[in-house]
Structure formats: C-alpha cells, structure tokens
Design a protein around this nucleic acid. Structure first.
Lengths: 332, 332
DNA sequence: ATTATTTATGACAGCGCTGTCACGATTTTC
DNA sequence: GAAAATCGTGACAGCGCTGTCATAAATAAT
C-alpha cells in the first residue's frame, strides 16, 4: 500500500539510488534533482521503510531501558532523562519491565532490534543480565552499579560519600542514635550507602548498632514498617536516614501516626530528591542525585559504545548534593 | 558477526527454510529434524534478525505510547498497564514525549516501525496528531478522548458522570460554595469533568459561579496557586474539587500554609487516585480511574485494530469509583 | 506390489533499502 | 580545443528472512 522508493524514483524520473541519496541527505545531488525528488516524495506521502533500512544498515534507532525497580519516582527521572536524550539524538526509548514476563527481555535484546541497553539498579549488578547482553553482543551501559568494571560504561554518584556526608550532618546536629532504613541488599547502591553510614559513625567514634538498621524495599510501605520497628524500640533513634525518599515519606507518615512530630521530636532524611520530597510535609531533607543527567550521560556513553565497541568503557561519577529542607533538626 | 539462518541450516544439514519453520514453530517438521535444528541454533547462539523478519512480514512488535502530559503519576499508571499488556502479548513499548523534539514523533511513526500507537490526553484530542497517524495509515487507539468517534477505538471512564457524582457527594455534605480546579481546557477530560460539576450544581439548584472555577495545569504547583486564589476570595469556597490528585495535593499544601485545616475547615477532593493520593496527609478522597486497566484494554483494542483494520472501532467505558478517604468532611 | 494420499523438505523469489563501483555529464586546466 | 579533474547519476548486488509452490519421502489405501 505504502509507496516505495522505486515509486518515488519513477515519479521523479530518476533512479531509486538517487532517491535514497536525497532522503539520506547525502551530498552530490544537483539541487534541481533534489527538489524534484522531494516533491515526488511529498506527493506520494512517502517515508523510508525502517525495517529495510535497519536490515541494510545493520543498525537500529532504538534504545532499551530495563526497569524493575520498586520506586516509580526514581524510574520516572531516569526515563525522562533518557527520553530527552533520545529525542535529541534521533533515537527512541523502549521501556521494558524485566520482571514482567521472563521471555520479554530475551525477546527484546534478540535479533539486533535494540541498538543498546540502559541498565538501572538492581539490574546494573545482575550477572545473568550482563551475561545475556554480552552473549548477544549488544552494547549496554550501567547506571549506579555497585562498582565500575570493564563489562560496560557506567554512570553513578559517589553513594558512599553521599551517605557519609548525610550521616555526618546528622551527627553534627547532635544525633547519636541514627536509624538507617536501607534498600534491599541486592542493590549495590544499598551496600554503598550503608558503607558510607558506617564510615561516618566510625569517624565520630559512635558504635555501630545493627538494631538500628532495617532493610526496606524502597517503597513507601516498607518505609512505614521499618520506621515502626525502629520507633518501637525501647531506646528509639532520634534520627532516621532512609535510603530513598519514598521510604522517608513512609517513615514520616508512621511518625505522625504515633504522634511523634517531625522534625522537632524526630529527624527524618531521605535520598534521591525525587518529586515526593518537596510535596510532603515537612519537605524532606535529602541527598540530591542528578538522575536525569545521569540517564542522559548514560545514553551518551552508550552511543559512544555503539559507535565504537572497541573503546575502553568510560565511567562517570556525577556530583551529588545535600538538600536541606525542613525534616531535620537538632537532637531533641 | 552474528550467525544467520543459513549458518544454522548448514550446521544442521537442512535447508534454511526448514530452520525458519522450526524457529517460527510451524507444523510439519519431523521431531528429529526439529531437534537437530534447535541444537544447531543453540550452539551458534543464533537469534532471528528482527529487521529482516519485520521487513518480510511487514509487521513489527513495537507499540508506541505518546506522552506529554504534565502529570507523571497519571502516565506512570498508563505506562505500567500498557507495558504489562505488551510483555504478555509479545510486544514492546516505546515511550515518546510528543513535545520533546518536533521531529521525534514524526520519525517514530514513519516507515512502519510501529505496529500501533496509544494516545493519552491531551493527544487523544489533537487533530494534527490524528491526521498524521491516519496519513501514515498506522493503527492507533485513544485513551480518554473528549468524545468517541470513528477515527479509532477508544477507552475511557465516564468523566462527566464521575465528576457529577463527586460534586453531588460534596453537596450532600452540605457544601454550597464548591471551588473547582480544572485541568487545561485543551484536555477533553477537563471539559467533561467541568460539565459533570455543573450538572450536579444544576440538579441541586445551586447557581454556577465562574469565580469559583480556576484552570490549573494538572500540576502540584498550579494546584497550590489556584487554591491560593480561591482561598483569598472574600467569600471562599468550603470545598475544593481538583481535577487531579496532584493539584489536590497542592491545594492541601496551600491550605496548611494558610493555617486552614483539612478536612475540618476545608474539604479538598481529587481525581484519578494515583499514588500521591494515599501518601499525603490527610489521605485524599478522590475518584478512582482504573488507569492500568484502561491502558491494557486500549492495547487490546489496538491489537484488534492492527489485525483487522477494517473492523469498526470499539469504544469501551470502564467503571469509576468514588474513594472516600479523609480529606472531605461536612461543611464547617 | 501399485497407486493415491499425506507429510516433510527444499528451490526460488523478493520484501525495501543502502554500499560499492562504474560510467556519462559537466566543469576546469593548460 | 583536447585532456584532466570533478561531479552527478545509475546498475547491481545483497542484507536475512518468509511466502508460495514444487518436489521428495513416507504412509495409507487398493
């Protein structure tokens, strides 16, 4: 039904190769010829067939973002950053949930349909995924992996340093019993943030108390339940550091439910600085990760990788920042 | 570099056509042959080339979701519903921001790369987009269009009825001055909800007062600013009905800032029932739209359309529900 | 055993495009 | 004004796969 390049060639009275040249903006076509072709193409409402082009070029304009993360707001920012980059660079973003259907991911990375793949936690550290990608010989980039390595380029912030700074901030405020709600242990970032927390305690000569550490799942609900456990302790913490903002929001809700005022009676701080942080009450003191920039940069490194598979993978560390809003205060 | 179907055929000692049969699960291949081929394919780490297959089949396994909506949480739900459906049905979801790069959308729908397109507000009602899609002869489906028509199948809730019910609920509670924060007028749903609001007022013989109506942009910030205007009136409303939950959350924040307690002094209700509704304090009374189901159903109708372009487009109306949480109360 | 029927496999063409190369047309150079 | 350099265009092959049709092999029917 749709016109082919040959139809356009006939209509314009040139060879189909010339049409191809015009449509790809190649040099070496007389202006008059170019116009003739463009006119014919417009008239026939013609567009190049992408499958044919991809077949011939052995390429694709599709980048996959693999998600499975429990925190939608985190994904949102990553996705927006990646989408923006894609549309500025002639790519399109395919978003696939890794957990949804086991075969879905396999099918996606099969057959050269994707030019490259962006991995976010916890997939960034998943050996099975990395093996598959490597086996299919498809370029990928890792966002916030536990550690950078040669398998692929990566983009991250220094989670350990960031968590340490936030913990130090809390210590400066006089807090000595600081609860930590971590993310799942399978997330490299969780382990890194935990390490930063311990480093700060060590520096301040505060003894690490594993009873003050609870593992959540990066969700509002687990933030609530972990806070509940922490606040039920005979000697509860005076500050809680949650490993993401959703859990911090849940912790705040749990505090209110128990009649504990934030920040006057309890300090609660988060991590990520996603939308919820400035919408809840009190607005959250948190660690800002430049998630959109990280995603855009990841796409950038991915493209370099696509263009030149041989180059050594680059590893970027983007700056983080403590955002001091209203959910923290001196030790009550 | 990657093996082709011919390599597999040679390795298995059969013709490449037989390999194609096995890989596509076609009948009429002897078990022994099938196994031989499967073994060879596995050994060579072979996967069918998608571009070649799409070219030959004149098809694709990609569905595009076009976004541009200011409300991330709305999109999130739609996207999750669509993604889930895709992975259960052998498709993949491409998410494209319509506003990002003018050429991005055009490029995406060009060349038969997409099997179909899902439109959400406000694109569902955008004549330019619909014209382009029709011109490219690509199947699409509209979520929450202002009105169903023959251009494409559609899925929606009865926004007018839902808004009317919520307004009636407010009237039942004794409210007579009910502020309305609408979405942008370019959204068909905004107009439909507004109509429902007026219908309820008319039924209760309450005079419509345009001073009580403010147009927001479906964002937290505009919820705040519209609420600010409403609450600054000499004779402010006793209840505010926001056309989505983000704006309702903004309105609640604004009330608190002014020292107005919700719901004891002011009732605020939302629309959509997205995540923020149950996370803020007080939890939001709102209208629940089954956004995930709507998206899945939309994808379903889209697939029918892809398979049979001739069929008359179907139009589904899914059920809505008032969710009574804690942000509403009787007139103070 | 012979023919009819079914089943398994292969030959071939071609989807719509781009890369390579060759050739004719045009312009430049002396 | 002839040779050289440049530019514009076209012929051709083939990317990797699937659809159609023909043919070989296996099975059933006589």
């Amino acid at each position: 039904m749709n016109a082919t390049i040959i139809d356009v060639a006939n209509a314009a009275g040139v060879s189909f190769k010339t049409v191809s040249r015009v449509l790809n903006g190649e040099a070496g076509v007389r202006d008059k010829t170019r116009e003739k072709v463009q006119l014919a193409a417009k008239e026939l409402n013609f567009t190049l067939n992408t499958a044919a082009r991809n077949l011939r070029r052995r390429g694709s304009n599709l980048i996959a973002l693999i998600i499975s993360n429990p925190s939608r707001s985190y994904i949102d920012n990553i996705q927006i950053g990646a989408m923006d980059w894609c549309s500025r660079n002639g790519f399109h973003l395919v978003v696939e949930d890794f957990r949804a259907q086991p075969s879905g991911f396999d099918d996606l990375i099969r057959g050269g349909e994707m030019a490259g793949v962006i991995l976010i936690p916890p997939m960034s550290d998943d050996p099975e995924i990395i093996t598959k990608l490597t086996g299919q010989n498809i370029p990928f980039v890792r966002i916030a992996p536990e550690t950078a390595n040669d398998s692929a380029p990566s983009v991250r912030i220094d989670d350990q340093a960031a968590a340490k700074e936030m913990t130090q901030k809390l210590i400066e405020l006089g807090h000595k019993r600081i609860g930590l709600i971590t993310g799942p242990n399978e997330f490299g970032v969780s382990r890194n943030r935990m390490a930063g927390y311990r480093l700060a305690l060590d520096d301040a000569a505060i003894k690490y108390d594993s009873a003050l550490v609870r593992e959540g799942a990066f969700s509002y609900e687990t933030g609530q339940s972990c806070a509940a456990r922490l606040l039920s302790m005979p000697n509860p913490p005076t500050a809680i550091f949650a490993s993401n903002d959703d859990m911090a929001a849940g912790a705040i809700a749990e505090s209110y439910k128990r009649g504990i005022a934030v920040p006057s009676e309890l300090t609660i701080v988060g991590y990520d600085d996603v939308a919820v942080a400035s919408v809840i009450s009190p607005p959250l003191t948190t660690v800002r990760q430049p998630l959109k920039d990280m995603a855009a940069r990841a796409a950038e490194l991915l493209l370099e990788r696509i263009r030149n598979q041989e180059s050594a993978p680059k590893h970027d560390v983007l700056p983080h920042r403590l955002i001091l809003r209203a959910s923290h205060g001196p030790r009550a």
